[in-house]
């Protein structure tokens, strides 16, 4: 399974490397495009020193952790987004005749290695914020855990989005609101959002576990919404539950496809 993924991804990488200049240009541009989000944060903090009680470095820490996870998924999983195109063009049939999971084939479909630029950009911001913050070294272990958790949550979201597209082939953009919307939502301290929204993305769609809850632990801050302290460590559980749900939805989506045809 994994080897099939990397074989597919490597083939696309080689295809992209055939034009080295274009490859380099796209990597750099990916970095710049992703940089606009940081630019927005920097411009905001050029006008204020704190946003809903969070400093610039703290906000960048939240941005960095969420975006490393998000951009990793953007690179390795988000290709699933093209499923409605494949269904409409009838090319999904050709994936069903291969002896490999359709999820693996879709996730590796037209893999774009140049998206590594975005991951790097997020990692740079994260590195800067960690150096700018005076973090308790005993709590740093949480950072890799939260990035992994976040990556699993985003991957599950993209899978769900893909599964939904089997049904909503004409309205696939709806799923962008959930995938890219989640990426946008987790860039900022949840303290800026309304109480109802935060409750929804804590107990409903578990986006609070991408970075907000664990970051409160790393930054040693109280939750402005008074969520119980143990919630800060529940990320992996939430991610697992969502991943199982997504896997189930994906199967349902494929079954729907095979029972309607193209």
């Amino acid at each position: 399974m994994v080897s099939a993924y990397f074989r597919l991804a490597w083939t696309w990488t080689r295809a992209a490397m055939a034009y080295p200049a274009s490859f380099a240009l796209m990597s750099v541009l990916g970095l710049i495009v992703a940089g606009t989000d940081v630019a927005v944060i920097l411009i905001i903090f050029a006008n204020t020193t704190s946003l809903a009680g969070f400093s610039r470095a703290e906000t960048l820490f939240l941005y960095g952790t969420a975006n490393v996870a998000f951009c990793l998924c953007d690179m390795f999983v988000s290709n699933i987004d093209r499923i409605s195109q494949h269904v409409k063009a009838g090319t999904f049939d050709t994936m069903l005749i291969r002896p490999v999971s359709t999820w693996i084939q879709m996730a590796a479909d037209r893999f774009l290695p140049t998206r590594i630029g975005r991951v790097l950009q997020a990692a740079l911001v994260l590195g800067y914020s960690i150096s700018a913050l005076d973090l308790d070294s005993g709590r740093l272990w949480m950072i890799p855990v939260m990035i992994t958790t976040g990556a699993v949550i985003f991957a599950a979201l993209w899978t769900l989005a893909g599964a939904v597209q089997f049904v909503l082939t004409d309205a696939s953009e709806v799923t962008n609101a959930f995938t890219y919307g989640s990426g946008q939502l987790t860039q900022y301290p949840f303290a800026i959002y309304g109480r109802e929204l935060v409750r929804g993305v804590t107990y409903g769609l578990p986006l609070a576990f991408v970075n907000w809850q664990p970051a409160l632990y790393v930054l040693d801050r109280d939750d402005p919404f008074g969520t119980p302290g143990f919630m800060r460590f529940l990320g992996p559980v939430a991610a697992l539950v969502l991943a199982l749900l997504a896997g189930f939805a994906w199967r349902l989506g494929i079954r729907h496809y095979r029972s309607t045809g193209s």
């Binding site: 809903a52 004409d170 953009e173 709806v174 929204l197």
Partner: peptide, 30 residues
């Protein structure tokens, strides 16, 4: 393209809400 438009309007609305919160927080500070 009715459904594509509905989907687009929905996505624009979601992003509108998320961005609105950012601006509200900023204007509360300033």
């Amino acid at each position: 393209y009715v459904w594509a438009t509905v989907a687009g309007a929905f996505t624009n609305s979601v992003f509108g809400i998320l961005r609105a919160y950012i601006l509200i927080a900023l204007w509360q500070a300033r």
